[in-house]
Amino acid sequence: MRALVEASAKIGFGAPYELNRRELVPFRHDRRNVSEFELLILACFKELLGAKSEMDGRRCGFYFAGAKDTLTCLVEIDNHLADRQDKTAALAEFFEDINPLTALDWLLNTGLYLAAKENVDCTRHCQYISHPNSDHNAVAAAVRDVSTGVVDVGFAVGACAGGGFELPIEQVGGVGVRIVAGGGEVDDVFELSSRSHPELLLDMASAHSAMAPGSALAIELPVHKSAGS
């Protein structure tokens, strides 16, 4: 099963970056609750979207990958509770000023906000987490869905963020590819294979950015044959 990389984006992973919360998070009431992980996803996604007109009339699929940094929040919760006997009141207090969903990973759905803001037709979406193959899952789903015509464009985007503990700066960032259907003549082929998130996406984005403008990079998703076929 084969598809083409139409665009790639990489933020961070050793390179300095700044994230504009106000620009990336459409709804003011949610801004303070969006973590760095989500901002990285959003920033990458926004870069991949390109000009809005590029997506007009195209059915899009969003496939996000990674482990969200709920960690800052976890540390805060734990320390907030540490000296308190009245645990229930302490928890209620903690959540008084923040969106209660912050502590969960659900805000990964934040990526969908940007689609709404940009008025992009999100026909399919999924997010893959907590597993070393999560970026493989995301890219494979994007290739699958553009190949079968379920969507016209697939966005596979992953991120890593430190949150409550310090990750080496080389490991913090967002990376993604924009994928469309296509075969025929290509300049290079990138075969999907397992490796720890986000290495697959990083390698793919690097391969794409290293190519000359106008070159075509194909992604090959191996399809094992049925025993009976």
Binding site: W106, I129, N133, A140
Partner: peptide
Amino acid sequence: DRYSGVAT
């Protein structure tokens, strides 16, 4: 990699 953990 034939396993997907989904969270939506």
